[in-house]
Amino acid sequence: MRPSTAQSWRRWWPLVALGALVVAIVVVAAMAYLRPKPPPAVALPLRAAGEVELPGGGSRFDYASLDPDRGLLFVAHLGASEVIEVDVRASRVVRVIPDVSQVHGVLVVPALHRVYATATGRNEMVMLDEGTGQAVGEAPTGDYPDGLAYDSRRNAVWTTNERGGTETVIDAVTGTVRGTAMLGGEVGNVAYDPVSDRMLVDVQARNELASLDPSTLAVTRRIALPGCDHDHGLVLAPAQRLAFVACDGNARLLTVALESEAVSGTADVGRDPDVLAYDLGMSRLYVAAESGWLTVLDVRDGQPVVIGSGFLATDAHVVAVDPVSHHSYYPVPAGTTGSPALLDREPVP
């Protein structure tokens, strides 16, 4: 660099740096402004009913699945690559099932006495004996398996391969891979509708809900989700012919009428909604968010109405509900003592 050029650069450098700083501040401010804000706080219709200290460090938990007949809750401790089994009736940890690499999804099927878990670190689904916790088989999946669903009519487990944009269909007893469904983009959660005998899958890359024939694994319908950014969470109310979809990009909950296959309502929920749970007996929907915000909605005349919305706990993005007791459960990295814990909440009368 010539001396004159260097001198000129030194002269202008402070202004260039100041300009870059101003641009950075504007960008950060714009992102903060555009980021979804939490909805107005409304007292949660819940009260503390107990707390179970969980083993291991306070690393990330993911999905949870409950066997309501036995009162056993299976929690995916993703950060520790283990599944934690909790007796929610006795409020104690039954066992820790290790070596489920980066476990995300977990699903108990009481009729088969089996627990299924996605070992995301190995791109596998692991099958566990519900009574002993022993691994009884595994099956290869697509890239980054996450959520799970059970097709009771065909005795098949579906794994959502988020990055792969596919669903792997696996025999629930033998672990044999029956086939792969192609969705055409990154996918979110999957659920089985026993009324229409269809699988529903969030295609979060396309902001749509795909309906598939579980016999042919073909997409038969793509339901547009206007107003949704990145649909990830999904739960069904089959008897009411409703699907609830959580859009984590813009903190919206969409209601889809399954008969008309169209969005019939929207609601604001906590930032970064993740796991949903539906209590059929109370017609009550729970939406747990990465932000620790919980939204509770009652379904009235086919539409969910917010009855409670507020911060529950840091990283309380997982929820499971007991259809018998109507208690809801939330694994969190830090409970009241600062250790990992399972929070137990019961409805306020």
Rank of each mutant, 00 (worst) to 15 (best):
63 Y>C: 02
38 P>S: 04
97 I>D: 02
97 I>N: 03
38 P>E: 06
42 V>I: 15
27 V>N: 12
62 D>V: 14
45 P>C: 03
82 E>A: 10
23 V>S: 02
27 V>Q: 13
101 S>W: 09
109 V>I: 07
105 G>C: 07
101 S>Q: 12
109 V>A: 08
91 S>V: 14
28 V>N: 14
82 E>D: 07
28 V>R: 13
31 M>C: 12
83 V>S: 04
69 D>H: 10
46 L>C: 01
69 D>K: 15
67 D>K: 11
72 L>M: 10
89 R>T: 14
76 A>T: 12
43 A>I: 13
47 R>D: 04
88 V>R: 00
33 Y>I: 14
104 H>L: 06
60 R>P: 04
65 S>G: 05
23 V>M: 01
32 A>Q: 14
103 V>L: 03
71 G>L: 03
96 V>I: 07
92 R>P: 14
63 Y>G: 05
92 R>N: 09
24 A>H: 08
43 A>K: 10
24 A>Q: 07
98 P>K: 13
67 D>C: 07
35 R>P: 15
26 V>F: 10
52 V>H: 00
68 P>C: 15
99 D>C: 02
92 R>D: 15
49 A>M: 04
105 G>W: 03
21 L>T: 15
70 R>S: 12
50 G>N: 08
45 P>L: 07
66 L>F: 11
98 P>A: 10
95 R>C: 01
54 L>V: 02
66 L>W: 06
22 V>M: 02
75 V>T: 09
59 S>Y: 12
41 A>E: 15
20 A>Y: 08
90 A>K: 04
24 A>S: 11
76 A>Y: 07
29 A>C: 11
34 L>W: 15
78 L>I: 13
60 R>I: 15
68 P>G: 13
30 A>N: 13
86 V>A: 01
42 V>K: 10
90 A>Q: 10
105 G>I: 11
50 G>F: 02
100 V>A: 09
35 R>A: 14
46 L>H: 05
62 D>K: 00
62 D>Y: 07
22 V>I: 13
108 V>L: 10
83 V>A: 04
50 G>K: 02
77 H>C: 04
93 V>Y: 00
64 A>D: 13
